[in-house]
Design a protein around this nucleic acid. Structure first.
Length: 411
DNA sequence: CGTGTCCGCCGTACCACAATCGCGT
DNA sequence: CAACGCGATTGTGGTACGGCGGACA
């Protein structure tokens, strides 16, 4: 069992939301990000299966593991190691509120999305009302947001484009009841039967779904372990790579952004600190998200990725571990090359790109500042002129030992 | 090498009050 | 539906204090 969902705290987290800096299970991901148009813009991706704390950007086809940039470097970085030649696939971010079936289509290597969506949380608490038409429209252009750029020339993306253009997402949560996670395994025939059954339900009747096949990976829960079961908290590894300070980005925030309340606050869930109106699956994440997103500047990087232009949100105002890669690694590096490449000695371009990216990262790391961020200049001005006793504010008119205006002792 | 003490560093609580927010009328 | 009032909450800076780790005997 990997890390639990930051939202419901019960299901295993599978998706990482950059905007919220939160790890979510599929159900909560869909619930949270279907709340309104703003939340649907949040870019998400799979959670790194190694450190379980960072968004995965690379899928190692040899190890069948989704890795964040750092774990990818750890595992494949050494040019002398055999693992450096592993074929890897770029995992890109998605937005909107896709169902598990839709995710499983796009992340074809993750085959237990439907099973994962059999979420007790979702069942218990009831689904948010999701307008599938809206959800489909809010996905934007997948070719641009880049769900997955396949090794064979982005074929899946093209399929997805055509599919998006021709069909509305009306997938009613296809959940095979025979898939029992706790049972430990299902045989491939059962799982494949599921695929055919969902087709029979009219789930996949368009061109895209017809072309969607799952033959490239065996369907069993041994693979489930390979896919998700090996997640391990590896904070040491994380810290070794970037150091603790790399977890925090530059807080270069305007003081006049107090009206900018992002996160779930303005996105459907009232999350005023201390008066949080919790959604059905509740825990502290909404508050945390509200805190982290209150001053979210949402920098948008636009990086050319082959023929497609990627757009993904950048740093959150409150830097968090989730922003670690974003602040330290260039977008190009973060998203990797669009093509499938083995990082072998014969292929020097990616390593050169990586070296330059590492250099840029280190330069940026050096230049980081940890200046305190003032959100309300008016309050700062008030505090600056307030009289204090031993550093504490005192009532107006009381004796004080520190007056910031006159710098004299009153007694 | 293990133990105890000292010292520096770091994080946090504390305070008042204007600004802000949410809710009811 | 807009306006208003009221209570609750937030955020601001300097200092004190406790915890922690390193240095040293």
């Amino acid at each position: 069992m990997g890390p639990l969902c930051d939202f419901c705290g019960e299901q295993r987290s599978m998706v990482y939301c950059r905007s919220d800096a939160a790890c979510l299970c599929l159900s909560c991901d869909r619930n949270v990000h279907s709340a309104n148009a703003l939340s649907r813009r949040h870019s998400r991706t799979l959670l790194c299966e190694r450190c379980s704390s960072q968004p995965a950007t690379i899928r190692c086809l040899e190890e069948k593991t989704s890795l964040c940039q750092n774990c990818d470097w750890d595992g494949h970085g050494a040019s002398t190691s055999s693992s450096s030649t592993h074929k890897r696939q770029t995992i890109k971010y998605y937005s909107g509120c896709p169902s598990a079936a839709e995710l499983s289509r796009i992340w074809s290597f993750v085959l237990d999305f439907p099973a994962m969506e059999e979420s007790n949380c979702e069942q218990r608490t009831g689904l948010m009302s999701i307008d599938e038409n809206v959800s489909s429209s809010c996905w934007g252009s997948p070719g641009k947001t880049g769900m997955l750029e396949n090794a064979n020339g982005g074929n899946e993306v093209d399929k997805f484009d055509s599919w998006m253009a021709s069909s509305s997402m009306c997938v009613p949560n296809p959940i095979p009841s025979q898939v029992d996670q706790t049972a430990g395994s299902v045989d491939s025939s059962t799982s494949k039967k599921y695929t055919s059954e969902t087709k029979g339900l009219g789930l996949c009747e368009d061109d895209f779904c017809e072309d969607f096949d799952v033959d490239d990976m065996e369907l069993n829960f041994e693979n489930y372990e390979e896919l998700f079961g090996n997640s391990q908290t590896n904070s040491e590894q994380l810290l070794e790579n970037g150091g603790l300070d790399s977890l925090f980005g530059v807080k270069d925030m305007s003081v006049a952004d107090s009206s900018c309340h992002g996160g779930y606050d303005t996105e459907g869930v009232s999350a005023k600190k201390g008066k949080v109106v919790q959604p059905t699956c509740s825990n502290g994440v909404s508050t945390d998200s509200a805190m982290s997103a209150k001053t979210e500047p949402n920098l948008y990087y636009h990086a050319r990725q082959g023929h497609s232009s990627l757009s993904f949100s950048g740093l959150t105002g409150e830097s968090s571990a989730g922003d670690y890669q974003d602040c330290g690694v260039s977008p190009m590096l973060l998203m990797g090359d669009s093509s499938l490449y083995p990082l072998g000695a014969e292929n020097t371009h990616p390593s050169f790109s990586r070296d330059s990216a590492v250099m840029r990262y280190k330069e940026k790391k050096k230049s980081r500042k940890f200046d305190k961020k003032i959100r309300y200049a008016s309050r700062k001005a008030r505090a600056d002129v307030r009289k204090r006793v031993k550093g504490r504010f005192v009532k107006a008119g009381d004796a004080y030992d520190y007056d910031p205006l006159c710098q004299t002792k009153s007694y």
